[in-house]
Design a protein around this nucleic acid. Sequence first.
DNA 1: GCCAAATTGATCCATATGGAACAATGTTGG
DNA 2: CCAACATTGTTCCATATGGATCAATTTGGC
Lengths: 159, 159
Amino acid sequence: MTDENLLDRIFAGELKELMVVSYIVLGNNQVTNRYIEDKYRMPVHAWSALYAIDLFPGLRAKEIRQLFPRPQNTISRAVSLLQARGLITQETSDADGREKRLYATDAGRALLADMIDFSRRRQEEWLTPLSPEERQTFFHLARKIATGPNLLESEVARR
Amino acid sequence: MTDENLLDRIFAGELKELMVVSYIVLGNNQVTNRYIEDKYRMPVHAWSALYAIDLFPGLRAKEIRQLFPRPQNTISRAVSLLQARGLITQETSDADGREKRLYATDAGRALLADMIDFSRRRQEEWLTPLSPEERQTFFHLARKIATGPNLLESEVARR
DNA sequence: GCCAAATTGATCCATATGGAACAATGTTGG
DNA sequence: CCAACATTGTTCCATATGGATCAATTTGGC
């Protein structure tokens, strides 16, 4: 049985949507995570956090979770790493002593520019099979799923 | 800044396709992996492997990697776990003494039926925002990305 | 037929991960 | 004002992960 047959059949079952989305992400991770971890010596979540912090200066750790749904301690560690490397600064919020407002440093922004450049070229690579119109449609539909009410809140998985 | 604003803006940048797909998968994993690990006491990769083995009786470990792109030792461990729990059997291939052909047992199939039922209902949940036509379009486009030439093989990430 | 290289899968080990408990701070209800 | 509760972020610890190495087997070149 050839590779194509295997994929064809797993993309034909009841769980085809789950299978195809998982395949895209596992496949991309295999390439991207390894590259980023090798080149920048940091887990991918650290660069995600840096990306978010640069986009929203003064961001709080809990808000990073809204952008990248990960356990809370994963974010905490990523922020520690970025701080330890001088890529961000933290300052305790005036309004609430528990919160720390996060800001990218110049060094952080410089590193980020490099990472974004890679990610943009990598994204272009896996989007190659889609025309500009198809990309627009794909993004539109994916966005509907992402912002739908049941992605993070499940009735089915209630324990 | 509200949650919506944060998501709106991160889904508006150059990396919006990457961001939205990552968001869907991280969000779904947060719900699904925890449920499966709690209920069945196994990593999600073990159930993925069981799913593949049942669909393709006599499957080899290396072929599971084609369906679920993961490191080789992850598959090896998942197969060991399934074997230890009596959910699959392994028999050494006649043609090639290195290969082991994998088969689901009755117990494996019974457990799988339960897991598939959950996954189907969970998939239905996160697909809720899409109409039947939109689901078809989404799957069609995602499939093009998944089977494209650059998902697993990258020029950009070459080291 | 034989030896080098390739392939398949298991194991080792350092690091990442995530649930749970914790500490610090803020909020609420009486 | 104060005690209970909620929120924010850190730490602990058991387990998962993945690159590297290894063992067993097969393939290919001569």
